[in-house]
Structure formats: C-alpha cells, structure tokens
C-alpha cells in the first residue's frame, strides 16, 4: 500500500500543479506561475477533452462534415505553434514551450463552454438553446483571449501588442466557432454569423 502511495505521489503532485494552473486561467491576474514552470499535461488534457466532445456529434452521421478528432487536435497544436513562431518573429522574449503552455491552458474556458453546450443540447436544439450556447461561447471566447493576452502581453514589445494578439484572437475564434456550430444531430440548424 505504501508503495502505491509512493508511486502515485508524482502523479498527484503533477495533477495538483495542473489544477493550480487551471485556477490561474480562470482568474487571470498578473502572475508568472504559468510562465515559470510550464508543462504540457494540462494542454494535452484540455485538447483531448475538447476533441472528444466535438467528435461525438459526427460519429453517428458520416455526412455531417463535423470536426474530426484529428482535425481539432491539429488545429489546436498547429495554431499554437504558429502563434508562438509569430510572437518570436515579432520580437517576443517568451520561450517556445512557455507560449505553447499558456495558449494550451487558456483553452480551458472554451472547454467549459463546450461542456455547457452539450448539456444545453441535451435539452433541445431550438433557437433558444442556440442563443444560450452562443452567449456562453462568446463569453468564454472573450475570457480565453483576455487571459492569454494577460499572460503573453508582458513578453512582447509594447508597440506591437496588437500584432501578437490578432493571431491569438483568430485562433480562439476558430475554436469557439467550431463549438458554436457543433450540433450532435444530423441537422445543420445553426446559422452562425459570427460575433
């Protein structure tokens, strides 16, 4: 029994660290914890959760054209890498994995929105549910962008913040748009016009 405890200690410690960082994302303040000791467990967890939940819709209907697991996965990692390279090119002082870590952790509000959306979709797929989902996703989109800029902006030259924020904005916009247009049934009932 003691051996099991010993073995699970690092795991528990890592989980605790991940949980602490989740807290930082949900309540973004000028803190460098997320930057100082980066890890990619949290982003991986969030990314897999999001991809799995977006996957569920198109599993039963093949012609849905819904996002596939690989697609979501690729969008998140490829997008993060592009944003990171962009910020490096613009003269940012952040390291590669720090930026990946921050961008990955800041998907958390969107993952939460996805869970809420699935719960709302259980209730029905009318206009009211769409409006609710839309509001939730827009709010979490704003949250994600705000949190990631709060962490990333300090490492950028002050006159170029807008240039760094734009791809971040686009990245979260695409993800949140995927969440809004997600519908588990065969129907294509969401006419998203974008916020």
């Amino acid at each position: 029994m003691a051996e099991v405890d010993e073995a699970s200690k690092p795991l528990l410690r890592d989980l605790k660290a991940v949980g602490k960082k989740f807290g930082h994302v949900m309540y973004p303040k000028k803190s460098t914890t997320l930057l100082r000791d980066w890890d990619l467990w949290g982003p991986l967890l969030l990314c897999v959760t999001l991809a799995l939940m977006l996957q569920g819709g198109s599993a039963d209907s093949k012609e849905d054209g819904g996002p596939q697991f690989a697609e979501v996965f690729v969008i998140i990692w490829f997008g993060s890498v592009i944003i990171t390279l962009n910020s490096k090119l613009l003269g940012g002082t952040i390291s590669f994995f720090q930026s990946l870590c921050v961008l990955g952790y800041c998907i958390l509000p969107l993952t939460v929105a996805m869970i809420v959306c699935r719960l709302v979709l259980l209730g029905g797929t009318g206009t009211a549910s769409f409006i609710v989902r839309f509001i939730v996703v827009v709010a979490s989109f704003g949250w994600s962008t705000f949190a990631s800029t709060a962490f990333l902006a300090d490492s950028q030259p002050p006159n170029r913040k807008a240039l760094v924020v734009y791809p971040v904005f686009l990245f979260y916009f695409v993800i949140s748009w995927m969440i809004v247009t997600f519908s588990p049934s065969h129907s294509d009932g969401t006419t998203d016009t974008g916020p």
Binding site: E63, G65, P67, E71, V74, T181, D188, T191, D192
Partner: peptide, 13 residues
C-alpha cells in the same frame, strides 16, 4: 461548414 460541403478523403481544415 455552413454550406455543408463534404470532402471525401480529407478534412475541411
């Protein structure tokens, strides 16, 4: 996505 385009052997992305 809104036009419901279906692409065989590939992703929209």
């Amino acid at each position: 996505k809104t036009s419901g385009t279906v692409i065989r052997e590939g992703t929209l992305m």
